[in-house]
């Protein structure tokens, strides 16, 4: 049985790190949701969301869009993980979007046929949506090329003709901001005006309170749902049943992230990407499995080791190098 439990814990940990277990609300997510809701309800056709890697943009966007349905009603949504292509092909582009839609005939027809099929799919559903719009969430949108934007413009125009709206949520790395700047410089105002008028810089956890808030969300999550137990109960059931709460780890965890940040010499205030935070939490819980009991003794070193093992330190090193490169040193 202990072996089985161990396997189960590994499964949960892996699913968590892959972002496929559950989505939690953080203060950043809450803000993100508010912003997207505002964009969608004020008639925008798109928005830019960019940020450093591993911040949890994709998961946050998924969470926000899921919550948005409850706020503003159902709407058609397509999540498109953008592929980097050397040569942009209209046929491949629309085929990929149809594939993401799970359209039965995504492989069939010419570029025009695929565009028309996508249009039909979007229009039919957008018309029935409360916001009269369809949302396409482009993940890693920095890979989109000029042509892609033109084709999106065509789709958007056709939806306009049919009395509905296409909203393109472009989520990606900070290079996205550069793409926008380039468009402005080369006079492609139509694309910027349509899809990039709104923007949001996504950040990680930047205060101890935010970290504690995220820990509270983790603590309150029931996972796996079929087992009807708290997420942390999979690791430290006795402690949880005795009243231990994950937010108790907050100060120690923040202190560990802060220590590593200062030690790395990276400029600015501390920002903890969600990925490393989640990894550190999973690491800590896995370490505490053996010492699970009514009274859990959590030493700072356990948390520090987990934070170090999360890969945060290595990411800071890369960040430092990039900073130095930018400043020309």
């Amino acid at each position: 049985m202990p072996y089985l439990q161990s396997v189960e814990r590994t499964k949960i940990s892996t699913r968590m790190m892959a972002g496929r277990a559950f989505l939690i609300k953080t203060p950043i997510c809450a803000n993100y949701l508010k912003v997207i809701s505002n964009w969608l309800t004020t008639g925008s056709h798109g928005g830019l969301v960019y940020g450093q890697p591993r911040l949890g943009k994709t998961s946050a966007t998924r969470w926000a869009l899921k919550m948005l349905v409850e706020l503003i009603g159902n709407f058609p949504l397509i999540e498109v993980p953008v592929r980097n292509q050397n040569i942009a092909s209209e046929k491949a582009f629309f085929q990929h979007i149809l594939h993401c839609v799970r359209h039965r005939h995504y492989m069939v027809g010419s570029a025009g046929d695929k565009r028309d099929a996508l249009n039909e799919w979007l229009v039919t559903r957008a018309k029935r949506a409360t916001i009269n719009a369809a949302v396409i969430f482009f993940d890693e949108a920095q890979f989109l090329k000029n042509e892609h934007y033109k084709w999106l413009l065509n789709i958007s125009n056709e939806l306009d003709i049919n009395g509905c709206r296409l909203f393109c949520l472009l989520v990606g790395q900070p290079e996205l901001e550069e793409v926008k700047t380039n468009f402005i410089e080369t006079g492609k105002e139509q694309i910027v005006g349509r899809f990039m008028a709104r923007e949001l810089e996504f950040t990680g956890i930047s205060a101890q309170e935010d970290l504690i808030s995220a820990l509270i969300e983790f603590h309150n999550t029931i996972y796996p749902i079929e087992n009807n137990i708290l997420f942390a109960e999979n690791f430290i059931p006795q402690a949880i049943n005795s009243g231990f709460k994950l937010n108790a780890l907050g100060p120690a965890m923040w202190s560990a992230f802060e220590t590593l940040w200062i030690a790395s010499g990276v400029s600015g205030s501390v920002v903890v990407p969600m990925h490393y935070f989640t990894a550190a939490l999973i690491g800590t819980l896995n370490t505490l499995v053996d010492s699970d009991g009514e009274f859990l003794d959590i030493q700072q070193s356990i948390v520090m080791d987990a934070v170090k093992a999360s890969g945060f330190r290595e990411s800071l090193k890369i960040r430092k190098i990039l900073e130095m490169n930018r400043s020309g040193k």
């Binding site: 839609v101 799970r102 359209h103 039965r104 005939h105 995504y106 099929a117 039909e120 799919w121 039919t124 029935r128």
Partner: peptide
């Protein structure tokens, strides 16, 4: 059909 269950139809 289970995998690619989306088609265009006007309900």
């Amino acid at each position: 059909l289970a995998e690619y269950d989306q088609t265009s139809w006007r309900p």
